[in-house]
Deep mutational scan, measured.
Amino acid sequence: NQASVVANQLIPISTALTLVMMRSEVVTPVGIPAEDIPRLVSMTVNRAVPLGTTLMPDMVKGYA
């Protein structure tokens, strides 16, 4: 089972991601792979991401 990136807090729309905002967790459905966390830092989300939500590729500008 692959770990995915999960929001560690509410991430408001257009917020630049930082390490403290994300954690890795094995979830269903599978989202962005946890090993991509370093790549996600400073990318922005294009929607509000509630606490505990799995980050999907279409939620992060420039990721997909």
Rank of each mutant, 00 (worst) to 15 (best):
Q2K: 07
Q2C: 13
A3N: 08
A3S: 10
A7N: 01
A7P: 01
A7Q: 00
N8H: 06
N8A: 12
L10R: 13
A16L: 09
A16I: 11
A16D: 06
A16V: 11
L17C: 03
L17E: 03
T18L: 08
T18G: 05
L19A: 10
V20K: 13
V20D: 14
V20C: 08
M21G: 02
M21R: 00
M21S: 05
M22D: 02
S24Y: 07
E25S: 09
V26E: 15
V26R: 04
V27R: 09
T28W: 07
T28S: 11
V30L: 13
V30N: 11
V30S: 12
G31Q: 03
G31Y: 02
G31T: 00
G31C: 03
I32D: 00
I32N: 00
P33G: 05
P33R: 07
P33N: 08
E35A: 11
E35L: 12
D36C: 15
D36F: 10
I37M: 13
P38L: 09
R39Y: 11
R39W: 15
L40W: 02
S42H: 13
M43P: 01
M43I: 03
M43E: 04
T44E: 09
T44C: 08
V45K: 00
V45Q: 02
V45G: 01
V45P: 01
N46P: 00
N46E: 10
A48W: 08
A48E: 15
V49Y: 02
V49K: 00
V49Q: 01
P50M: 10
L51E: 15
L51Q: 15
L51N: 14
T53P: 01
T53V: 15
T53E: 07
T53A: 13
T54A: 07
T54K: 04
L55D: 01
L55Y: 01
L55P: 00
M56C: 10
P57R: 08
D58W: 11
D58R: 06
M59N: 06
V60E: 03
V60F: 05
V60W: 00
V60A: 02
V60Q: 00
K61N: 14
G62S: 12
G62T: 04
Y63G: 04
Y63Q: 04
Y63P: 04
A64W: 04
